Simulated assay, not measured.
Amino acid sequence: MSLSRITRFPSARLLSSIHQQLLLPPVGPLTVPTRAVIQGEYRRPGKPKENKFPWQKINFNFNKGLEGIKKHFMLLKTEFSDRWVGPEGKPVLEHMLEQNRVMWEFRGPESLEEWTVSSDHEIGGQSEAHLRLGKNNTCFLYGNLSSTPPRDGETRYSGYCTMRSKQPLFSFDRKKHHDWSSFNTLHLRVRGDGRPWMINIATETYFSHQRDDIYSYFLYTRGGPYWQDVKIPFSKFFLTHRGRIQDDQHHLWLDKVNTVGFTLGDKADGPFQLEIDFIGVCKDYAHTEEFAYEVYKRNPEV
């Protein structure tokens, strides 16, 4: 600032004198801190920080490594043999004429290893979910639902329990997808306690921001000692993203199905149980509906 401007504006002359008396350095332009290139994993409030390097969490076990190599080579052998016989080891003609297929059947403890159970206990909630084999060789999911949110000062809603199938893998941990394009209905035999559940189907996505897209529909259990056969057409499943129904709906992609899950979140605190005999898919020729919801056509027909 020049001397002529300082004498012209008394306020500027006063600020200049104060600046010289305090011997402050000249104020430069404001600098905005740049974001770190490597960002750590999100940590919930109240969760202790792990002061470990990433390689310290790896279990360097020689026997476990040999078992993994043997497992992947057996899967690779199965892949080559299935290519000669047919899809999934079945002849091509049998695969084309197939009308019913049982995807998950609970007949032993090893069948439960294909599923994972989680609840809001992972984020500080009080809900609990457990999975075990039933008396009649069935999947028995039970626990206690609590909608009390954790005291972390951030979470406002809580109260859910989920059971989800694991992602099928080829040899060397390559993704494997369920191809249900020949079927149009989800068929399962369950016995519940009268609570409403959500059936979730996750498919392969093309973009990273779609990884939370899930197709959902309702499962209403009757309760009581009797089993119920439930058939839900795939045309009834609607698209959701992180629990929110999307305006732009589209068909369920049946050629690349990854996982199937069951979610309980009816805000009714207390014990729950769900028993599953089998989960399968079928071809219902009486069902001719293509899609049950409105689809936005970008190029509508005139």
Rank of each mutant, 00 (worst) to 15 (best):
Q20D: 12
L23N: 14
Q39V: 01
P45A: 05
P48N: 09
K57H: 14
K57T: 13
N61T: 11
L66E: 03
K71Y: 04
K71L: 10
K77N: 00
E79I: 11
R83Q: 12
E88Q: 06
M103Q: 07
D120L: 08
R132A: 12
L133Y: 00
G134Y: 04
G134I: 02
F140V: 10
N144A: 12
L145D: 05
S146G: 14
S147Y: 00
P149C: 07
P149K: 02
P149S: 03
G159T: 06
G159Y: 03
C161R: 12
M163N: 08
S165F: 02
R174A: 02
K176S: 07
H177W: 14
H178N: 15
S181V: 04
N184R: 11
L186H: 05
L188S: 06
L188V: 02
R189N: 12
G192H: 00
P196T: 00
I199C: 05
N200H: 05
N200V: 12
A202R: 09
A202L: 13
Y206I: 08
F207P: 12
H209F: 11
D212T: 02
Y215I: 04
Y220L: 01
G224H: 08
P225R: 03
Y226C: 04
Q228M: 00
F234S: 00
W253Y: 09
V257F: 03
V257P: 01
G265N: 14
K267A: 06
D269C: 00
L274P: 06
E275V: 01
K283S: 03
E289C: 10
E290Y: 05
F291W: 14
